[in-house]
Design a protein around this nucleic acid. Structure first.
Length: 490
RNA sequence: CGGGGUAUAGCACAGUCCGGUUAGUGUACCUGCUUUGGGAGCAGGGGGUCGCAGGUUCGAAUCCUGCUACCCCGACCA
C-alpha cells in the first residue's frame, strides 16, 4: 500500500497531523489557531456527544444555553479565576465596521466603541453564576443541575488540531447545591461518568485523581481529572470535574435560606470535556495505516465493498449485499455500502483503513459462487472468509470483540509504560523514556515546580486509587506517604 | 514576545544563488479506451495577478526596500 502517513516512529507529531488531515477529520482554517471540523470528524464528535448527553441526563442534569459574550466586569469578581484566564481572552471592543475611505476596504468604526468590553467566553462560570443569583432564594430551589453544549475561545500561543485550538467545542456542567457534601458528591459522580465514558466508549483506560495546587482549575478548591496515556508516552488530560466550594457564590453573592432559616452561600461544581477527546481517541488507538476507531464511536461500523467486472455482476452482488445490510441494520449495526463506480476496490480498502472503519466486508464473483464474504477487521488487519449465513451474528460478535481488544491493547500499553521509581536519577531516565511515572513527592509546590523546570514532567494527578506507602520524596528526600503520578503532558 | 524558516495551479514541490523563449514536475481534476480480489494503464485536455506594495532594469518568480500571513523551536497553555 502506498504510504500516505508519516510513520509514528519517524515523527509522531507529524503522523498525528497527517492522520487528522488524511482521514478527513479536520483541517486548519483561514483563522489562526481555529480548525474546520470536517463531516467525518464531526460525525465522531456527534457520537461522543450523544453518549455523554445521555449519561448526563441519566444522572439528573438538564441542558441550557448561556451567552457567548461576558461583560468584562464579571471577570474581576473572582480573583484567582481571572488570573487563570486573563492572558488568553479574546475581547470585543466595537460593534460596527465602515468603509475605509482612505485605504479602501473596511475598517473598525472608531465611533462604535462599546461602553464596556465583552469577553468571548473562555469558560462560563461567571455569566452562569451571575444568572444563578436570580434563580436561587431558598434551599427549595436547589440543587440546580445544568449542562451546556457550547464553543469557547482561549487565545493559545500555539495550537494543534483537536488537542489545543483557539476555539473549541465542549460541554460544561455547572451545578449549585445546598451543602458542601452534596457538591463534593456531584464532583466525584461526574469524574466517574467521564471515566466510564472514556473506558467503555472510547476504549481508553484512564487514571482518576486530583490535581495539585499548581495544576488546579482557577477558582476551584479541588480538581478531579482523568489522565490518559498516548502512544508517544505523553499524558493527555481528558476531562476535569471541579469542586468550587463557595468561591463563585461569594463572588456573585448567591445566598439561599436553608432549612434552619439562616442564610448561607451556595456550593458549586463545574465539569467539562471538549473536542480534545477527539485527539485522545486518535492518538490512543491509531497506527501507521491510519485511524482505528472503537466500534461504539465509529460513524459507520461496517463498510461493504463490491468487486465486479460488469453491470450484471454488480447487480447480482448488490442484491446479496442488500440482504446483508438489512440483517445488520436489524441488529442495530451501522453499515455503509460503497458501490461508487469511480474508485477501484484497492483504493477503497486503503481509504476505509485510513478512516478507521472497524469492519470491512468485500464481496465479489468468487463469493457469490461460494456463498461467502471476506471480512477484514481494522484493529488487527486480519482477513477471513465467512459464510453469508449468520454473517450478521458473526459481525455483531466481532464488533464487540474489537471494542474489547482495542481497550485491552491500550491498557496493556499503559501497564508496560508505567513505572515506579525511588531516586531522582531513575525518575529523570523514566521521564525521558516516556510514560507514567509513580514516585514519592513531598507535597510542596516548590518541589513540583523544580521538577517541572528540570524534566518538563508535571504531576498529572494524585490517583484516587493508591496504596499507603512510607517513602521519601525523590527530589527533596522529605517523607511521603504515597506515590503520585508524573508524566510529560500535552 | 525571542530564534529559525516558508510563501509559485486544489494539494505537495522545483525554478530564485548567476534577471532573458510560452514558468515546470508529481498528484488531483476533465474526456476517451482498456481495467476492477490491496491506492490501475495509456492517450488527450483544462487550470497560474509566482503572498502584497513600491523600486532598479530594455526586460523581474528571480535583484533591492517595506509590509503581511503561515509553519517550526522556545517562552506560554484549568
Amino acid at each position: 500500500m502506498a504510504k500516505v502517513l508519516t510513520s509514528r516512529s519517524e515523527n509522531y507529531s507529524q503522523w498525528y497531523q497527517d492522520l487528522v488531515i488524511k482521514a478527513d477529520l479536520a483541517e486548519n482554517s483561514a483563522v489562526r489557531g481555529s480548525m474546520v471540523i470536517k463531516p467525518y470528524g464531526y460525525a465522531i464528535w456527534e457520537k461522543m456527544q450523544a453518549e455523554l448527553d445521555r449519561m448526563f441526563k441519566e444522572t439528573g442534569h438538564e441542558n441550557a444555553y448561556f451567552p457567548l459574550f461576558i461583560p468584562k466586569s464579571f471577570f474581576s469578581k473572582e480573583a484567582s479565576h481571572v488570573e487563570g484566564f486573563a492572558k488568553e481572552c479574546a475581547v470585543v471592543t466595537h460593534y460596527r465596521l465602515k468603509n475605509d475611505e482612505v485605504n479602501g476596504g473596511v475598517m473598525v468604526d472608531p465611533d462604535a466603541k462599546l461602553e464596556e468590553e465583552l469577553i468571548v467566553r473562555p469558560t462560563s462560570e461567571t455569566i452562569i453564576w451571575n444568572t444563578y443569583k436570580n434563580w436561587i432564594q431558598s434551599y427549595r430551589d436547589l440543587p440546580i443541575l445544568i449542562n451546556q453544549w457550547a464553543n469557547v475561545v482561549r487565545w493559545e500561543m500555539r495550537t494543534r488540531l483537536f488537542l489545543r485550538t483557539a476555539e473549541f467545542l465542549w460541554q460544561e456542567g455547572h451545578t449549585a447545591h445546598a451543602t458542601k457534601q452534596e457538591a463534593i458528591d456531584e464532583t466525584i459522580q461526574m469524574i466517574n461518568v467521564y471515566a466510564d465514558f472514556a473506558e467503555n466508549f472510547m476504549a481508553l483506560p484512564v487514571i482518576k485523581g486530583t490535581k495539585t495546587d499548581n495544576e488546579r482549575f482557577a477558582g476551584a478548591l479541588e480538581t478531579y481529572t482523568i489522565e490518559a496515556l498516548m502512544q508517544d508516552g505523553k499524558a493527555l488530560q481528558s476531562g476535569t470535574s471541579h469542586f468550587l466550594g463557595q468561591n463563585f457564590a461569594k463572588a456573585f453573592d448567591v445566598k439561599f435560606a436553608n432549612k434552619e432559616g439562616t442564610e448561607d452561600y451556595v456550593w458549586a461544581t463545574s465539569w467539562g470535556v471538549s473536542t480534545r477527546l477527539m485527539g485522545a481517541l486518535i492518538m490512543a488507538h491509531s497506527d501507521d495505516n491510519g485511524l482505528v476507531l472503537p466500534p461504539k464511536l465509529a460513524p459507520y461500523q461496517v463498510v461493504i465493498v463490491p468487486i465486479y467486472r460488469n453491470e450484471e455482476q454488480l447487480a447480482a452482488i448488490s442484491e446479496k449485499v442488500n440482504e446483508i445490510v438489512s440483517k445488520l441494520k436489524a441488529k442495530g449495526i451501522s453499515v455503509r455500502y460503497d458501490d461508487k463506480d469511480n474508485r477501484k476496490p484497492g483504493w477503497k480498502f486503503a481509504e476505509y483503513e485510513l478512516k478507521g472503519v472497524p469492519v470491512r466486508i468485500a464481496i465479489g464473483p468468487r463469493d457469490l459462487e461460494n456463498g461467502t464474504v471476506e471480512i477484514a477487521r481494522r484493529d488487527t488487519l486480519e482477513k477471513k472468509v465467512a459464510s453469508i449465513d449468520g454473517v450478521d451474528e458473526y459481525i455483531e460478535n466481532l464488533l464487540d470483540e474489537i471494542q474489547k481488544n482495542i481497550y485491552a491493547k491500550a491498557l496493556n500499553f499503559r501497564a508496560e509504560n508505567t513505572v515506579k521509581v525511588d531516586t531522582y536519577d531513575a525518575f529523570k531516565k523514566a521521564i525521558k523514556k516516556g510514560g507514567f511515572v509513580l514516585a514519592h513527592w513531598d507535597g510542596t509546590s516548590e518541589t513540583e515546580e523544580q521538577i517541572k523546570n528540570e524534566t518538563k514532567a508535571t504531576i498529572r494527578c494524585l490517583p484516587l486509587e493508591y496504596e499507603e506507602e512510607e517513602g521519601v520524596c525523590i527530589f527533596s528526600g522529605k517523607p511521603s506517604k504515597r506515590r503520585v503520578l508524573f508524566a510529560q503532558a500535552y
